[in-house]
């Protein structure tokens, strides 16, 4: 029974997953190429200019090292948007979207528990996010080889970047899931999730570009995936614990709230 639900959920999202994977395959190769083309040439000039220097640390990434370029690629709005299509869109559509369409009651009139539905959404979401992140990293490596900067890349550190990225977007997915089980309509659930993600992203951007507001970055989930540092060999376990804690709290909310909610007739 769960297998059927799992298969159907994958099938319902396959176009989105394939499209996002292709987008990140292309995107991942771009950043090493941009770094090789411009970053190396202009890096010393910009770093020596006090007015421009503060803009070299956007979200923990920059264009003047391969690790910085890859980090920038990870926190770039394009990558966040593509990952968000799955991390936010999938849980929203799978529960409150079905609820609004009226198909959730057809599904839950079967011997399928609400918690089983949560498990299926998490499994499909995490699998898709893992695939997307892997696609971006593989594309990073391909881009580095094409650009001839592969010597600057430590491939053995990529799994850690992958795992931390998965934790970050897993936490965002868990927040979307918690919102999805808490509302009867798509727009409030989507609005609450996007508000949390965008405010968190904004804090990280402001904190990284404006030295006086650096403290805001500490309030952002994105701040704790320090891709450049990870690629350069520094890993802080507390970062993983913090993001994991947010993810666990959001999942716990969904786990306990969803079975206790009344599901009234669709309007």
């Amino acid at each position: 029974m769960i297998g059927a639900l799992l298969g159907r959920t994958f099938a319902a999202n396959r176009v989105r997953i394939i499209g996002c994977t292709i987008a990140l395959l292309v995107w991942g190769a771009v950043m090493p190429l941009v770094y090789a083309s411009f970053g190396r040439q202009y890096g010393s000039f910009i770093r020596n200019n006090p007015l421009l220097e503060q803009f070299t640390q956007f979200g923990g990434g920059d264009m003047f090292s391969l690790s910085g370029a890859m980090a920038l690629g990870f926190v770039h709005p394009f990558a966040i948007t593509v990952m968000g299509i799955i991390a936010v869109g999938m849980p929203i559509l799978a529960i409150v979207g079905e609820r609004q369409r009226g198909t959730l009651e057809v599904l839950l009139s079967r011997p399928v528990s609400r918690r089983a539905l949560i498990v299926v959404v998490v499994v499909v979401g995490i699998t898709a996010l893992a695939l997307l992140l892997a696609a971006q990293l593989v594309s990073n490596v391909v881009g580095a080889y094409v650009a001839g900067v592969q010597d600057e890349l430590s491939v053995r550190r990529l799994p850690l970047v992958w795992a931390m990225g998965l934790l970050l977007f897993g936490a965002i997915m868990a927040i979307a899931l918690a919102a999805s089980v808490s509302f009867d309509r798509v727009m409030p659930a989507l609005g609450v999730t996007l508000l949390i993600v965008l405010v968190s992203y904004l804090f990280e951007v402001i904190g990284s570009l404006w030295p006086e507001m650096r403290g805001l970055g500490d309030l952002s989930l994105f701040h704790y995936v320090r891709t450049k540092e990870l690629l350069e060999g520094t890993f802080r376990p507390t970062d993983a614990l913090l993001i994991g804690g947010v993810m666990a709290a959001a999942l716990a909310w969904a786990w306990f709230v969803f079975p206790r909610r009344d599901i009234a007739a669709p309007s």
Partner: peptide, 25 residues
């Protein structure tokens, strides 16, 4: 059978009936 049942519009009728039956096992 819910009142005014809503179904998965993108599936064919046969696929839908198969899927909903598989959920019963």
């Amino acid at each position: 059978l819910p009142a005014g049942i809503d179904l998965y519009d993108t599936m064919t009728g046969a696929d839908l009936l198969d899927y909903l039956a598989r959920l019963y096992g």
